[in-house]
């Protein structure tokens, strides 16, 4: 009998603290599969971020340092510059990466830091209780946009992948979702590519993952899952926005 699916080895055998149906667990698993696939568990140093993903260090069987809110790409820069032989990744939510840490991610990308970035976009601040994020959809009600996000008041949801793909330092940029088996397959592939980008010294590998926050969306897990295709994907189109095929840095 052959094993078709099992817990990845670099994922610690423990329960996630995430809410029922929260996709953080799914994305953690995909990242762990990539760590196993590329056999980098023993050389990985991750920079954890702030938000629901802060407990990353409890779930991955790897070395992890915690970063201040938004600063994970800078922390990762320090790690990677001082240890170019290590595999370095960051895992950040939308508040962390697209609001308070905008400068850090853009400049790490622009410097072509050889790190892998997993960007979790669930259109809301999760851990602090569902406040409006830079990625919150127009009309979406949150605890700080009680009348729905209004572009005149709050601007438009920010598309990070498109922005970062413009930068020469980015070797790979893709947006994926984890709401269906088909999307999951592509998400897995994109994360693998982002790992390979670092291993092959091709600059930053960046993957934005559209996912749910059932609790703060006020929806059941299945309904929340359906919202991704219905509302998020039309505004945040899936796809590979950039892929360098070789060491074609100028």
């Amino acid at each position: 009998m052959k094993t078709v699916f099992e817990r990845p080895q670099s994922l610690v055998d423990t329960s996630f603290h995430f809410c029922p149906g929260c996709h953080h667990g799914t994305i953690h698993r995909l990242v762990a599969e990539a760590i196993d696939e590329y056999k980098v568990r023993e050389t990985t140093i991750a920079a954890a971020s702030v938000g629901c993903s802060v407990f990353l260090y409890d779930y991955f069987d790897i070395d992890v340092v915690e970063s201040p809110h938004g600063r994970a790409p800078a922390v990762a820069t320090g790690i990677k510059r001082a240890n170019p032989d290590k595999f370095v990744f960051v895992y950040q939510g939308d508040g962390d990466l697209a609001a308070i840490g905008t400068a850090e991610i853009i400049h790490a990308a622009n410097r072509g830091e050889n790190i892998t970035v997993i960007f979790v976009n669930n259109t809301v601040y999760g851990m602090t209780g569902g406040q409006m994020a830079p990625t919150t959809m127009l009309g979406q009600r949150t605890t700080t946009s009680p009348y729905g996000r209004d572009f005149a008041q709050d601007g438009y949801p920010i598309r990070m992948t498109e922005m970062l793909a413009q930068l020469e330092g980015v070797g790979y940029a893709a947006r994926v979702a984890v709401d269906s088996p088909a999307h999951l397959g592509k998400a897995r592939k994109a994360i693998m590519k982002a790992f390979a980008t670092q291993i092959e010294n091709r600059g930053m590998g960046f993957v934005e993952v559209l996912c749910t926050c059932p609790t703060n969306w006020g929806m059941g897990p299945i309904e929340a899952n359906k919202r991704i295709a219905a509302e998020m994907i039309p505004y945040f189109p899936l796809g590979v926005y950039k892929e360098r095929t070789g060491s074609d840095f100028m």
Binding site: M1, K2, T3, V4, F5, E6, R7, L11, S15, F16, F18, G21, C22, H23, H24, G25, T26, R29, P181, L184
Partner: peptide, 10 residues
Amino acid sequence: MCPDVVFKVE
């Protein structure tokens, strides 16, 4: 699809 890695399949 499981976010909590509940299943093993052989």
